[in-house]
């Protein structure tokens, strides 16, 4: 049973990570910085619960606010670069964050042990869950509560004026300006909200793994972050969830019996999926079918 709860936890946290990239991708910005915000959330929340003795929820929110604030700062210079150059710039930022934690030591004595982040050795003993007697099931439930909150928030945002603005910026910046949309505000707030969401994901991640180190937050994780929404499709947050289940549940876990051949098949299946469904696993057509089936949004109109 614990294996499945563990898998649920991974899928949940990666969904949050994917959603953090989703909102930035809506504005047409390809970001490799999400692993950096995720790392900031992980380390700050870990330090608050371990060193300051906070409860996880306030620690998580503060960590997410810090990540969101940093993301806001990254958003401004990101305005000046586009496309491939933005990829390079955000990759550099993500690596800078990783290397910061690689060099960062801040340990205090707790009883007869030293706790806190210790550079390359990482940050061990983030034991909020076991210390408070949470079972794996409780943790999974906690994670999925936040997944649900974030998905619902983004779902609502997508259907509101704000969502239309972000999409308009993503489709054509010049046209968006010509109808009076403030490009700076749209792009920077997408970055800030994305950073906040990544911060929540990181905070949860640090606590269920109990041990984090800089190497967890490299380019591979950042690539996964944008792969989920791109593979899932930018029509809806559901696509990101489905893509995480596909990659983490099916490709990573389901194909384990293939041994080392798995990695090869892994890449091939992603390429295949993108070719069969170029607009993502969940595109507008699937969404319309879903809407008709469940009659969602009959009252809300077709906004």
């Amino acid at each position: 049973m614990d294996f499945y709860f563990g898998l649920l936890q991974i899928i949940g946290v990666h969904t949050i990570l994917g959603l953090s990239a989703y909102i930035v991708l809506l504005t047409g910005q390809v970001t490799i910085a999400q692993a950096g915000f995720f790392a900031i959330g992980a380390y700050i929340a870990g330090m608050l619960t371990v060193l300051a003795g906070w409860h996880l929820v306030p620690a998580m929110l503060v960590a997410a606010l810090v990540a969101g604030f940093v993301a806001c700062l990254v958003g401004f210079p990101a305005l000046r670069v586009k496309g491939l150059m933005l990829v390079v710039a955000t990759t550099a930022f993500g690596e800078a964050v990783r290397l910061f934690w690689f060099n960062f030591d801040y340990q205090i004595a707790k009883g007869d042990v030293q706790v806190g982040p210790l550079g390359g050795e990482g940050f061990k003993q983030i034991r909020f869950f076991p210390e408070n007697g949470w079972t794996t099931g409780d943790v999974a439930l906690f994670i999925w509560f936040w997944v649900a909150v974030i998905m619902a928030g983004l779902w609502w945002m997508d259907r509101s004026r704000a969502g239309a603005v972000l999409r308009a910026v993503g489709e054509d910046e010049l046209a968006a300006q010509s109808v009076g949309i403030n490009l700076t505000a749209a792009k920077v707030s997408a970055f800030a909200v994305g950073g906040f969401i990544a911060g929540i994901g990181g905070a949860i991640y640090a606590h269920y793994t109990t041990h984090i180190e800089h190497a967890n937050f490299g380019v591979i994780l950042a690539t996964f972050a944008i792969a989920y929404p791109i593979l899932g499709g930018l029509s809806s947050v559901l696509g990101t969830l489905l893509a995480v289940i596909f990659i983490q549940g099916f490709l990573v876990e389901g194909l384990r019996f293939l041994g080392d051949w798995r990695n090869l098949l892994f890449g091939a299946l992603i390429v295949l999926a993108m070719n069969v469904r170029p607009r993502g696993l969940i595109d507008e057509r699937v969404l319309n079918t879903l809407r008709r089936t469940f009659s969602i949004g009959q009252g809300g109109g077709n906004a």
């Binding site: 239309a164 054509d172 009076g180 949309i181």
Partner: peptide
């Protein structure tokens, strides 16, 4: 420069943005 992946009506709504 219409918004290609928005419907006609969403394009019109975008025009009324302000």
């Amino acid at each position: 420069l219409v918004f290609p992946e928005m419907t006609v009506e969403e394009n019109l709504k975008a025009g009324a943005y302000l």
